[in-house]
């Protein structure tokens, strides 16, 4: 019977496809954190951008004015933990960090950025040019620190 034959074939294909997907899941990257070729990568500023580029990038060390947000990490807590802040598009923003151990921030701008900070006091400077809502999260605590409303 033809339909039976097709069902048999489908069964075989299904088995193959499940095996392939299962093999795929064995790859350590599948369940753990994704591994990047260069885990210490931070966004580099590279000037080859056309005018309509996003560039939520650059640190502008000379300009110390603008908004500052204080962030304190202590144990497995962070303060603030999920607040909204309004910031101006294109204006420098400083994240003033006091931390008891080094860690990593995820800044969900377009494109996204990662910032590593050391133990102790440090400043992360960024300028977000593109209006929108940008979440700043703690990678280590898996929690939202601040939601930036960039206007």
């Amino acid at each position: 019977m033809r339909p039976q034959l097709r069902s048999g074939l489908v069964g075989l294909l299904t088995a193959i496809c499940l095996v392939v997907s299962a093999c795929g899941s064995d790859d350590p990257g599948a369940t753990d954190q994704p591994t990047a070729p260069d885990s210490s990568a931070t966004l580099s500023t590279d000037e080859s951008s056309p005018t309509d580029q996003p560039s939520a990038t650059a640190t502008k060390p000379k300009d110390t004015s603008g908004t500052t947000i204080d962030i304190t990490f202590k144990g497995d807590r962070v303060d603030p933990n999920g607040v909204e802040r309004r910031v101006k598009a294109g204006k420098p923003l400083t994240l003033h960090i006091v931390a008891d151990k080094p860690g990593e921030l995820h800044i969900h701008s377009s494109p996204e950025q990662e910032r590593e900070y050391p133990a102790g006091t440090s400043d992360q400077k960024l300028t977000i040019d593109q209006p929108g809502v940008v979440e700043v999260e703690s990678h280590d605590l898996d929690t939202l620190i601040v939601q930036l409303e960039v206007r």
């Binding site: 990568a41 580099s44 951008s49 939520a56 494109p111 996204e112 990662e114 929690t143």
Partner: peptide, 27 residues
């Protein structure tokens, strides 16, 4: 710039809390 970084994979995947895409629309 950062796009090149995105493509060549120097920027690893970000937090699980978050899906795809960076900034969201303003309210």
């Amino acid at each position: 710039m950062s796009l090149a970084a995105l493509q060549t994979g120097t920027l690893p995947g970000l937090v699980p809390m978050h899906g795809l895409g960076g900034a969201k629309d303003l309210p």
